[in-house]
Design a binder for these strands. Sequence first.
DNA 1: AAGTTTTATGCAAACCTTTGCATGAAATTT
DNA 2: AAATTTCATGCAAAGGTTTGCATAAAACTT
Lengths: 341, 341
Amino acid sequence: MSEPRATLKDIATKLNISISTVSRALNDHPAINQRTKRKVKSTAKKLNYYPNLLALNLLQKKSHIIGVVVPEITSHFFSSVITGIQDILRPSNYNIIICQSEESYTEEVEILENLMRVGVDGILVSPSSSTKNFDHLRRFKKTGIPIVVFDRDCPGLEVDKVLVDDYDGAFQAVDYLVKSGCKRIAHIGGPLNLSTTKHRLNGYLDALKQHDIPIDKKYIKHVKGFTHEDGIKPAKALLKLENQPDAIFAVNDCIAISAMHAAKMLNLKIPEEISIIGFDDEPHSSYFTPGLSTIWQPVYSMGMLSARILLKRIDNKDEKQKLREEIFKPELVIRASSKKM
Amino acid sequence: MSEPRATLKDIATKLNISISTVSRALNDHPAINQRTKRKVKSTAKKLNYYPNLLALNLLQKKSHIIGVVVPEITSHFFSSVITGIQDILRPSNYNIIICQSEESYTEEVEILENLMRVGVDGILVSPSSSTKNFDHLRRFKKTGIPIVVFDRDCPGLEVDKVLVDDYDGAFQAVDYLVKSGCKRIAHIGGPLNLSTTKHRLNGYLDALKQHDIPIDKKYIKHVKGFTHEDGIKPAKALLKLENQPDAIFAVNDCIAISAMHAAKMLNLKIPEEISIIGFDDEPHSSYFTPGLSTIWQPVYSMGMLSARILLKRIDNKDEKQKLREEIFKPELVIRASSKKM
DNA sequence: AAGTTTTATGCAAACCTTTGCATGAAATTT
DNA sequence: AAATTTCATGCAAAGGTTTGCATAAAACTT
C-alpha cells in the first residue's frame, strides 16, 4: 500500500522523456511545449509526486529552515513571539525548527551546533538566563549565517537586535506607584545576567531616585526561575518584613501573581494595603481578582519584526548593511491591583 | 570574515588525500590509520567543519525531521505536549518542525503538503477544530510515512493514537458536583467536531443520567474558540437564566476562568452559590481566587509517549505492527471553586 | 533549395556525503 | 624468496534536483 515517493525519474521513464524536460515542465519553463507540460503535470499528479526539497536544498546550498532558540515555549511570552515569527516566515516558504534551551547554557551550545549541522539559513535567538558568554554565537556568526537576537540582549555581540525598553517599562510602573502614594516599594527581580531583568531593576532604581526615595536593599529580592513557585518565597519574605512594603513591582506577571497570592494568604487588602504591578500582560492577568496591573509589551510584533529583519539579511547576504537595533516601547496597563492615582 | 562552510573536499585537498579517507577518518572507521585520523580531525576542527546533514539526508533518504501539527502553541496544553515530544526526539537526533493550523482546516491541509515536500520522517498531529474530513491525512499516510495522532482523535483514521479519556474526566467532574449537592449543573462545551469536546459533553450527560437528573438543554452552551473572551458571553447567558445554575462544568480552564469572572461580576459567591470546574489544570489555575477545581491530564507524558510510538514506527517501518491506541486517565483536582463534598 | 531563425528536448555537471569494491603496499607466514 | 595475509587508501556510484550548453527538428526567410 505504501508506495515510495515518486521522483522526476519515475515520471520521465513513464513518459519516455528526459528528466530535465520533466523538471522544466513542472516549473513552467517557457521552452517546453504546452502538450508536454500537460502530460507531465497530469502524470505527476497521478504518481502523487512531491518535489524533494532535500535535493533542492543541497543544490541551492539553502535549507529553507530557520532555527529559533528560546528558553522555553510554555510561557505565553515566547509562544507568542514564535507565532509572530511563524506568521512572517511561513508565507516566505521557510520552515522553522524551534529549540528550547530550558534556561541552560550547555543545552544552548549544543542546540547551536545542531543548527549548524542542519544547515539553517538563519537563526533567531533569545539566550538562556544562565548564558553569560556568547562565544557559541560568535562561532556561529563566523559561518556567515545571519543571527537576530530578540528580547534578551547579548551585550557585545554584533548582530541585529529586536528588544524592548525594559528600563522604561519598569520606570513607568514604579513612577506610577510613587505617584499613587506608595512609599515603600519593593521589587522582585529575575536572574541578574538577563538584560531584561537588569534593565527592569535599573528602571526601578532610577524611578525611586528621581522621586528622592532612598533605596533599601531589603526591599529587593531575586528569583531564580520564572514559575509561580519561584515567586512565593521572596514575596512572603517581603511581606513579613518589619517595615512591610506597600507596593511590589515584580519582574513578570507570573511572579506578580505569586505575590498577590502571598498577600492574600496574609489577609492583606490589594491594593489598599499593598499595590502590585507585573510585567508582560499575559491574557490571564486581567482575570485575576483584582485584575493585575502590568506592563504590556508588543510581543507578537516583536516576533514579526525579528523575522522580517532576518529575512532581509538572508536575501542580501553579501551586501554589508548596518546592524539594526530596534527597541519597542512597552505600555503601562493599570487595573485593580494598584491604587488609583 | 564569513567563510563559506568547509566540506570534506576542503579537508581532503588540504591534506592531499581522498575524500573517502577523510569521511572515514571522521567517522572513526577502523581501517584508517591513527595518524591520519588525528591529522584529519585536527584540520576539520581548524576549518570549522560541520557535516552537511542535507547531503547525508539525501543519501539516506531520511530527513531526521519530524513534523508536529497543532492548532496553536500559545496554550499551555499544547506547548507542554510539545515539550514532552521534544524531550524524547532530541536525544534521538531528530529535529522537529512545529506547525500551527490556527484551528483552520485549509491551513492544516497546506501544512501537510508542506511537510511532505520537506520529506519528514513522521508526523505527530492534533487536528484543528474545523477539520471534519481526514483525507489529507490519508493522502499523507499513503506515502508510507508514519503518523501519530494525539489528544484530538480522528475517528476512522487508521493510525497510532495517544488520547485522554475525556469522557471519564467529565464524568468525574459532574459526578463530584452532583455528590456535593449541586442540582442545576450547566456545561459550557467547545466546538462539536472535536472528539475531546464531544466526549466531555457525553461524560457530562451520562453523569447526570446516572444520578437521574433530567437534562436541560438551556443549561448547555458551546463556545467557538478557547480564549477568555469566547467564554464570557455563554457564561453570562447561563448565569442570567431564570432558574440560575448552581454549577458550571467548563470545557477547559480558560473558559472556566471566564465563568468565574462572570459570576463575580454578578456578585455571586463561589462556591456557595455556584460551583465551577474546569479542564486541563493549567499552572495558573490554582492561583485564582478561589483556586479553580479542574481535571488534570498528563500532558507532558502524552507528548513523550506519542513521540516514542512514532520513533518505533519509523524504526520498524516495514514490519506490520498492530495499531496502538493509548488512553491516559485524567484526574479530578478539587480546589476552592467547588463545594466540599 | 539553401540558409536562418525558432522551438523543443536532452546531456551532463554540480551540490556533499557514505560505502562496496578494488588496489597497492607493507608485514607476515610458509 | 615466494605466497599469503593484513593494513591503508582511493575510485566511483548513488541520492533527486536544477540549469547552461548543445543538439535536433521544425518553421520560416531569402
